[in-house]
Structures are given as structure tokens and as C-alpha cells.
Amino acid sequence: MAQQAENVVDLLLSQHEEIRNLASTVEKSSGETRRAAFDRLRELLAVHETAEEEVVHPFARRAIDDGSHIVDERLEEENEAKGVLSRLERLDPDSAEFQEMFSDFHKDLEAHASHEEREEFPRLRQEATDEQMRGMAKAVRAAEAVAPTHPHQGVESPAKNIMAGPIAAVVDRVRDAIGKGRR
């Protein structure tokens, strides 16, 4: 029997689990372990949110009752998170300021993921066909492959992501490659 293709909600839930694990590692560790976990978390959040903004939220906005309201609230949270994540990038991960700001960020990150998991994902499962769920998973993977690896506040719509995303992604990936991704 062939393995069933991945659906978008399962993909996103798996990424949420990885995000939670990385955030816990950042909060509980120090030194190079914290720095590496934060870099991976920052990159995963950047590509994950971009893909949600380009693929998942537009579908949810159209397909679920009160979808616009739900998506608008998530986009507001994502915008705020990008601002905090950008500020965190400029701090020394072992500083007291980073630790305090990251602790608050971690709580907000958990609240955001929980909102999606309670308010958006179950309704996506209800409204989308299996084919749509698999198609969105493929589209999310494709979007993540070319997404920026750093947060870009104010770029939360599909149109803005499509216009600014490719340029930001190239700049971010070059920045990462030459080791200046942090500061």
C-alpha cells in the first residue's frame, strides 16, 4: 500500500513541534547551543510564516466561515513577532536583555501556534478536500524553499511576499552564507 501524501495541516503541526522544541532549547541553554538553536528557529519561523502567508492564510480566508477575521488576527501576531525577532537578532543571545525579550517572545509564539491549531487548522481540515490539503502541502514546501530566512516585518500579504520575497530571500541567503546573518 502506497504511503499517503502529506497534508498541509500535518506538515504545519510538525513544524510547530520543531519550533516549540527549538524555542525551549533557546530558553534553556546558553553559549553556542543557544546561538545555533536561535539561528535555526529564526530561519524556520521566517520560512514557515512566509509559506503560511502565501498559501494557507489565503485559502483559510476564502474557505472558512469568519476566515478573514481569523487570518487578520494571525497576521497581526505574525507582524509583531517579526519585529521582536528582528530585535532579538541584533542582541547577544547570552545577554539578560535577550533572555528577557526571548522569554516574552516564546510565550507569544506559543499563543500564536495554539491559536492556529485551535481556530484555523481544524477548520481547514473540515473545508479542504484531501487533494487541496496535499496540494497546499506541496505549495508550502515550494514557498519555503525560496522564502527569506530572516523576518521582514510588514510583508505579511501574499502580494507583498511575492513582490519583496524573492529579493529578500536572495539577500538573506547571501547574508547567511557569508556568516553575517546574526548582526
Rank of each mutant, 00 (worst) to 15 (best):
residue 12 L to N: 06
residue 12 L to D: 06
residue 64 I to A: 11
residue 37 A to F: 04
residue 2 A to T: 10
residue 33 T to M: 02
residue 109 L to S: 07
residue 176 D to V: 05
residue 62 R to E: 12
residue 183 R to W: 11
residue 99 Q to W: 03
residue 129 T to S: 14
residue 119 E to T: 01
residue 161 N to M: 00
residue 80 E to M: 05
residue 123 R to T: 01
residue 52 E to F: 04
residue 24 S to K: 05
residue 40 R to I: 03
residue 116 E to D: 08
residue 117 E to V: 09
residue 13 L to G: 02
residue 42 R to I: 01
residue 13 L to R: 15
residue 140 V to E: 02
residue 125 R to V: 02
residue 139 A to N: 07
residue 140 V to M: 00
residue 18 E to I: 12
residue 170 V to F: 12
residue 68 S to H: 12
residue 147 A to D: 03
residue 40 R to F: 06
residue 110 E to D: 15
residue 43 E to D: 04
residue 154 G to P: 05
residue 141 R to G: 10
residue 114 S to I: 10
residue 82 K to P: 03
residue 115 H to A: 09
residue 5 A to Q: 13
residue 120 E to H: 05
residue 141 R to D: 13
residue 96 A to K: 07
residue 112 H to S: 04
residue 107 K to N: 09
residue 165 G to R: 00
residue 159 A to K: 01
residue 23 A to P: 05
residue 7 N to S: 10
residue 106 H to Y: 14
residue 39 D to V: 09
residue 167 I to K: 09
residue 57 H to D: 07
residue 38 F to K: 02
residue 37 A to L: 03
residue 10 D to N: 06
residue 166 P to Q: 11
residue 6 E to I: 14
residue 54 E to N: 01
residue 10 D to V: 13
residue 93 P to I: 07
residue 5 A to I: 08
residue 65 D to S: 15
residue 92 D to L: 10
residue 99 Q to Y: 04
residue 130 D to N: 13
residue 30 S to F: 14
residue 122 P to M: 14
residue 133 M to Y: 01
residue 161 N to Y: 01
residue 24 S to D: 14
residue 143 A to Q: 00
residue 30 S to H: 12
residue 3 Q to N: 15
residue 38 F to W: 01
residue 7 N to Q: 09
residue 161 N to T: 07
residue 111 A to P: 00
residue 65 D to G: 14
residue 11 L to Q: 04
residue 120 E to T: 03
residue 9 V to Y: 00
residue 6 E to P: 02
residue 69 H to P: 08
residue 81 A to Y: 04
residue 175 R to W: 15
residue 144 E to P: 06
residue 145 A to S: 08
residue 158 P to I: 02
residue 166 P to A: 09
residue 157 S to N: 03
residue 68 S to G: 13
residue 21 N to W: 11
residue 174 V to L: 06
residue 67 G to M: 13
residue 52 E to Q: 05
residue 181 G to H: 03
residue 63 A to H: 07
residue 96 A to W: 07
residue 156 E to C: 15
residue 148 P to N: 12
residue 138 K to T: 06
residue 78 E to P: 03
residue 87 R to F: 15
residue 147 A to F: 06
residue 107 K to P: 09
residue 18 E to R: 15
residue 49 E to P: 08
residue 34 R to K: 06
residue 8 V to W: 01
residue 10 D to S: 09
residue 15 Q to M: 12
residue 87 R to P: 11
residue 141 R to L: 15
residue 169 A to V: 04
residue 65 D to C: 13
residue 39 D to G: 11
residue 66 D to F: 13
residue 56 V to C: 07
residue 79 N to R: 12
residue 79 N to T: 10
residue 21 N to L: 13
residue 175 R to T: 14
residue 160 K to I: 00
residue 44 L to E: 06
residue 160 K to S: 12
residue 178 I to H: 15
residue 132 Q to S: 04
residue 158 P to C: 02
residue 109 L to E: 02
residue 106 H to W: 08
residue 90 R to F: 08
residue 110 E to I: 12
residue 57 H to E: 08
residue 49 E to W: 05
residue 48 H to M: 06
residue 106 H to I: 07
residue 167 I to V: 08
residue 107 K to Y: 13
residue 86 S to H: 10
residue 83 G to L: 04
residue 166 P to F: 14
residue 3 Q to V: 13
residue 169 A to K: 00
residue 93 P to A: 05
residue 84 V to T: 15
residue 155 V to R: 00
residue 17 E to V: 11
residue 70 I to G: 07
residue 32 E to T: 02
residue 89 E to M: 10
residue 150 H to G: 04
